[in-house]
Design a protein around this nucleic acid. Structure first.
Length: 230
DNA sequence: GCGACAG
DNA sequence: ATCTTGTCGC
């Protein structure tokens, strides 16, 4: 992958990416589905080779109520964009879109590993994936990015508002007692309460949604296979 | 100008 | 994200 950090060429690529986000942002729909509309829910995640030369994307579809796997797909390819906070989608979307295209099922919603609307330009990975696929999406991030918040209560389900300049952009949600909370934000065609509701429905024994955990495991396996088999 | 900064 | 050793706990 091209590395020249401060090279004018790389600088131009970042500006084009930001312009792309500004162009697609207006296409995001703030609401659409409700939790009862979701029968099949997918989770997506990626894994990188240690030298960041290859990225493997995976998507796992679960029955929203039994949480059993009903479908899955993956794809791997060379990494062609650097990690830049705020531009994660340009680094991860290619592999995720390839994986989604290989799916035999059409999920009713997609849980992403990262942020949606709680983003510097209100267009994080979850929003981008949603607009491009026209699928309802939301983000569940493991660490803080932007905004301010108070620590939520200790019980599962306790939450606080993630705000930015007085605007609520997400929820800091306790999915399990004794563990750090997760950061939920809307992606596309869903509202924050529904995204939060789905996140809770997908978490029972662990901090992160089962969808994300399965996708994480699959992406690592796919990467290991590709690296191992040349 | 300096620090912070999803995965 | 990935690297990386042990350690505490269910």
């Amino acid at each position: 992958m091209p590395t020249a950090d401060s090279a004018p060429q790389a600088d131009s690529a970042l500006k084009k990416a930001m312009a792309e986000q500004e162009r697609l942002r207006p296409l995001v729909l703030p609401q659409g589905i409700t939790a009862r509309d979701v029968h099949l829910v997918a989770g997506v995640d990626v894994a990188y080779a240690k030298d960041e030369s290859i990225v493997a994307g995976a998507v796992v579809v679960l029955d929203a109520h039994t949480r059993h796997i009903v479908d899955s797909a993956s794809a791997s390819r060379p990494v062609d964009f650097p990690y830049v906070p705020g531009l994660l989608a340009f680094r991860e979307l290619p592999a995720l879109l390839d994986a989604l295209a290989a799916l035999h099922t059409r999920p009713d919603a997609v849980a992403c590993d990262g942020y949606g609307t709680a983003h510097p330009r209100r267009f994080g990975l979850a929003c981008h994936l949603g607009v491009v696929t026209d699928l309802p999406t939301f983000g569940v991030a493991k660490t803080a990015f932007i905004g301010e918040y108070e620590q939520p209560g200790p019980q599962r389900g306790d939450r606080s508002q993630l705000t930015d300049h007085g605007e609520t952009i997400g929820h800091v949600l306790r999915t399990r007692p004794g563990t750090r909370p997760v950061f939920v934000s809307t992606g596309h065609r869903i509202d924050l309460d529904t995204a939060t509701q789905l996140t809770l429905a997908l978490t029972a024994d662990h901090r992160l949604p089962e969808t994300t955990r399965h996708a994480d495991r699959l992406s690592r396996q796919v990467l290991a296979d590709r690296l191992g088999h040349g």
